[in-house]
Each structure stands twice: as structure tokens, then as C-alpha cells.
Amino acid sequence: MSATLTPPAGRRVAFAPNWPMRIALLLLAAYTIWACTRLGLTWDRVLHGLGEGGKLLARMVPPNFERWSLLLEGLLESLQIAVLASAIGILLSLPLGLLAARNLSPWFIAGPVRAVIAVCRSLHYVIVAILFVKAIGFGALAGTAALVVASIGFIAKLFAEAIEEISMKQVEAIRATGASAMKVIAYAVLPQVASRFIGFCLYQLDSNLRNSTLVGIVGAGGIGGTLFAAFKRFDYDFVAAILLAIIALIFLAEIISGRVRAALR
């Protein structure tokens, strides 16, 4: 790429071959074939799967909305989980984000808090949900707790990064008036990051809603449990109905959050 920008030493070749790239692509192709054999993915299997997929689709059509009350109940529970988890997650992320910002808190506090946030972020929410289900029992509480952890991982990290980018002049100015630490935060730090914080929160509310439709698969409440049960009973037409309902809900949430974001700008 950059070779074409430097003045040519000898004869200039239009579209010079990029050998490192070609070799890398070749290696990627070789890896793909090797990994396919390792995982037992063969062409026969794919073709067989295509046939099975056709059968599955045929059984999903038409979607069966007969048990709509069950569907609605699950969706509402998912919504409740999402709302609660977002609220608690946001409340917890505020102090954690402030503590994790390296320009406001000393390193011996920022370091451990950052580690906690990194662990929250690295563990997939379904794994966290399983642990909570085992620890505190089936139901919406476990799902809420799992999504709170996920929310902290996301909001607190981005919030801390946003705080690290603020201008310290205003902090100094407020501090010079003799303000206490809380007042410095309230009048010098938060006004600078508030709009971005709200953006993160909206995004997380959105993804909490997506994820809350899923944690039920491991027994943590919401529509996911209904979905998994329907799968296990081979009620594929009901599965299709649930999937359509989930997609509709997520679409709706995306439209609403898009509107809110546009209004905030």
C-alpha cells in the first residue's frame, strides 16, 4: 500500500502484487481447511444440514400465536428484568466509574476497581446468569443480577474512560473555591460527561433488553425460558412465534432509543 506512495526506484509497476497479503490469505485458507477437518465439518454434513434446515423452516411456518398469554407474560418479565438491571447497573456504575478514573482517584483505588470492571466485562452474561441461578435460585432475580454485572462492565468502563478525557481546568477551578470532593464531582466532573453517560445508559438499556430475552435459557427468568421449553418440546411453530415477538420488541426498542437519542442531540 505504502510502496505505491514512495517514489519508484526502478520500473514502476501499476497494481504491484502485495505478497505479504497474498501469503496471509493463503495461510488463512489453509487454516480454514485444517480447522474444518478438526471440527468434523464436511461438505456432506453441510448439505445434509441444508435439508434438515428446510424441514425445520417448514415446521416453523405458520407461527402459532395461540398461547399468546404465555408469550406476553414472558415478554413483560423480560422487560422488567431489563428495566431493573439497567437502573441498578447505572446506579452502581456511577461510583465505580468515578473510582476507576485514573485522573480523579489514586492508583491504589483505580487499579482494583478497574480489575473488577474488567472481570465483569470479560465474563459472558449467560455464564454469570448460570452462576447466579445456582447461587440464588431460579427466577427473575438471577437474571437481573447477571445483567447488572454486565451493565457495570460496560457503563463503568466507558464512563471511566469519558472521565479520563475531561478537562481538568474546571476541576481545578471548583477545587480552588474550597469545594468538597462531592461538590467537585457534582459541579466540575459530571457536567462534562453527563451527555455521554446518558448515551451509554441508553445503549446499555437497549442491550439489556436484548439480553434479558435470553437469560431465561439458563433459568434466569424472562421469555428465554419459554423459548427454550418450546424448543425442547419441538413446538417449532410456537418457537417461531416467540422469535417474531422478540424481534418485534427489539425493533421497537431500537426505534424508541433512536428517537430519544435524536431528541437529546
Binding site: V83, A135, I136, G137, A145, G221
Partner: peptide, 26 residues
């Protein structure tokens, strides 16, 4: 929204009460 979620969500109070204990045990 939060109030609605808190009041109507199906949380068993006993589970909530011994949650910290159970987490520690785990």
C-alpha cells in the same frame, strides 16, 4: 418504569434475603 418493574417482578423474598450468603458459599 422502575417502580412498575420492582412491584410486579416475580422475586421470591427468601431468595433475595439469603443471596449474599449463598454467593459466599458458592
Amino acid at each position: 418504569a422502575v417502580l412498575w418493574a420492582v412491584r410486579s417482578i416475580d422475586i421470591i423474598p427468601e431468595f433475595l434475603e439469603d443471596a449474599p450468603e449463598q454467593m459466599a458459599d458458592l
